[in-house]
Amino acid sequence: MHPEIALLNDFLLVGAALFGVGLIGFVSRRNMIVMFLSVEIMLQGVSLSLAAWGRFHNDFGGQALVLFIIAVAACEAAVALALILTLFHRRCSLDIAAWHFLREANQPPFRDAPLPEEPSERLEPWPHLPPAGARPEKFGEEDKYRPKV
């Protein structure tokens, strides 16, 4: 097989994989920001495909198109984040399922399945500095720190 065709094939497959994974994220995740990230992943897959096709056709058009995608993605990010913030201010939640006013009049609202109890994470306060010059009262208080961000 011609090496250029093999290269195109491989890059297109990777692009398709990125597109599909982003699609899964967009459809299944309910956090609006994560959904948005998923859309960006889909755009990455498309960009990759376009660049590969541009090389195959020995033309800068593909790359130019990817640049436009980046520009449009930037616009989209600005507007969408503004919208997300506004929506968040209304509901104090990033959950997309909180917004389904466009349903048919007699359809029941979306309800969460009851979530099982999360193994409780101890949310300890951030470490504070002991008074200067004094010995900390208890050593080994690291295990009280918040384990993750």
């Binding site: 459809v27 997309i96 466009l102 349903r103 048919e104 979306f110």
Partner: peptide, 17 residues
């Protein structure tokens, strides 16, 4: 067909997929 119009963005996206 009415339950299809449940107002969830993701349902519409899935239908599109």
């Amino acid at each position: 067909l009415r339950p299809a119009q449940n107002g969830l963005v993701q349902f519409y996206a899935l239908a599109m997929v």
